[in-house]
Amino acid sequence: MITEITTTHWIVLAAVLFGIGLLGVLARRNALVILLSVELMLNAANLVFVALGHHLGDVQGQVIAMVVMAIAAAEATVGLAVIVLVSRTCRTLNPDELTELKG
C-alpha cells in the first residue's frame, strides 16, 4: 500500500484535495478565498481525469482535463471581475455581510 502506487492512490489524493477545497468554500468567509478553493476542487477533478485516463489507456482524460482548465480560467476571470466590482461598491467581500438582498 505504501510502496506500490496504484491508480486508486491518485484518486484518493484527488478526493482529499476536493474535500479540503469544499471545506474552504464552506468555512471561509472571503469571496477570494472561496474562489481559490473552487480552483482547488476543479484541479482535483482534473487529477481524477488524468489518473483514470492513464489507467484506461484513453487520451480522452487528458483532453477533458485541458478543456476543464479553460473553463476554470473563464470562471476565475469572471469571478475576479465581479469581486473587484463588489469590493468597490460594498467595501466587503464577506458573502454573509452582503445583506442588501433580504426578504
Binding site: L26, A27, R28, R29, N30, L32, V33, S87, T92, L93, N94, E97
Partner: peptide
C-alpha cells in the same frame, strides 16, 4: 478587505 477574512 481584511476584516472580512475570518472563518465560520
Amino acid at each position: 478587505v481584511l476584516p472580512s477574512l475570518g472563518g465560520a
